[in-house]
């Protein structure tokens, strides 16, 4: 077999190939996981369980997509729970609900998406303009978001009565809830952004080497702020889905979601140092996390153990995926 021109041009073809194997590893883990769980409990491979898995995967997927873009740039976003909680609570107060007379319907949804974009934009501006490391800026906005949600609710929970919002979790199309289709739509949008837009290319360029990207004439500040804004919108979609699934908005709705999101992204093989990964890998990562917890439920492992297992998965996945030759100092 003759080598293609691309392979000849590549200075390190061997490393490229190894990277390709590494990027398939999560898929293999997922397949293996499915086989093992089916072996232990055949109920795993039923259509009903498949729907259950898709239902628990839809929110982590949407959140993971947003976080993937951030992590591809080499940054991190800890404000996932803040935006999600704020979005869910605002939605529950804007659409037909049990606490006030509002009934804005689709307009309410747009306001929530705009709020998500605004928080993301603020993240980006603080991070870029004030030069605050992203994990600190977003740690602050995480608590600000949850704090505002708490202040809005005053310790209560708001029941959602809007049939359209409830329908996202209840109504089905081809056997799957509409929320799952919405999450898949988000995935498609994210794939287009990642592969066919300038922003997508720039995100990879920034993650691969920011100085080089800046020297090539990319406005790195604008790309960063845009990406944080984009991620905020995805978290707001996650908030809408979470509110629909629970049927109400409360201040605890986001608890533990940051953890699942970051686990999914890094287990999917997206590198925390930036530049390597994709939203499709995040889909695989989300499925690994969800299938594993579904399998543990089928095996009777209490849910509280799963957080610990996820913690170990994060460390293992990051340790395996980091290209350590590139970085001498790890902070």
């Amino acid at each position: 077999m003759t080598a293609t021109p691309e392979e000849l041009a590549s200075p390190q073809p061997r490393r490229a190939r190894r990277w390709r194997v590494a990027s398939w590893a999560p898929v293999m883990v997922l397949v293996l996981l499915c086989i093992i769980i089916t072996f232990i409990n055949p109920n795993f491979m039923t259509f009903g369980n498949l729907v259950r898995i898709s239902q628990s995967a839809m929110i982590p997927l949407v959140l993971g997509i947003g976080a993937t873009f951030i992590i591809l740039m080499g940054s991190i976003d800890l404000s996932v729970e803040g935006v999600l909680t704020l979005g869910a609570v605002m939605l529950s107060m804007l659409v037909l609900n049990g606490a006030n007379a509002n009934d804005y319907g689709i307009v309410g949804v747009f306001i929530v998406l705009l709020t998500g974009a605004a928080v993301g934009f603020i993240n980006g501006v603080i991070h870029v303009r004030l030069k605050v490391p992203s994990f600190m800026a977003t740690l602050g906005t995480w608590f600000i978001g949850v704090g505002i949600a708490n202040a809005l609710l005053g310790g209560m929970a708001t029941r959602i009565n809007d049939p359209w919002i409830r329908g996202l979790a209840v109504q089905r199309f081809l056997g799957f809830p509409w929320g799952v289709w919405l999450a898949l739509f988000c995935l498609a949008v994210a794939l287009v952004i990642q592969n066919y837009t300038r922003l997508g290319r720039y995100i990879y360029a920034l993650g691969g080497g920011e100085e080089l990207a800046a020297l090539s004439g990319i406005s790195t500040a604008r790309v960063r702020i845009t990406t944080f804004t984009l991620a905020g919108i995805f978290y707001a979609v996650g908030g809408i889905l979470a509110a629909a699934q629970l049927g109400l908005g409360n201040a605890q709705i986001g608890n533990g979601r940051l953890f699942t999101t970051i686990t999914a992204v890094v287990v999917g093989g997206t590198s925390l140092s930036g530049g390597q990964g994709s939203v499709l890998q995040t889909l695989v990562g989300v499925l690994i996390v969800v299938v594993l917890s579904n399998g543990m439920v089928l095996m009777g492992v209490p849910p509280s153990v799963q957080i610990g297992v996820q913690g170990l998965m994060i460390i293992a996945a990051v340790a395996l995926s980091m290209d350590r030759k590139l970085m001498r100092i790890v902070k």
């Binding site: 991190i76 994990f135 953890f259 970051i262 890094v266 925390l272 209490p302 509280s304 153990v305 799963q306 957080i307 610990g308 297992v309 996820q310 913690g311 170990l312 994060i314 460390i315 990051v318 340790a319 980091m322 350590r324 970085m327 790890v330 902070k331």
Partner: peptide
Amino acid sequence: RLKVPSFIATLAMGGVLFSTALV
């Protein structure tokens, strides 16, 4: 040893500890 950035290593360790406390 594993060269995991500290905020991720401690976030993950926090999860393990929280899980231990819950159980």
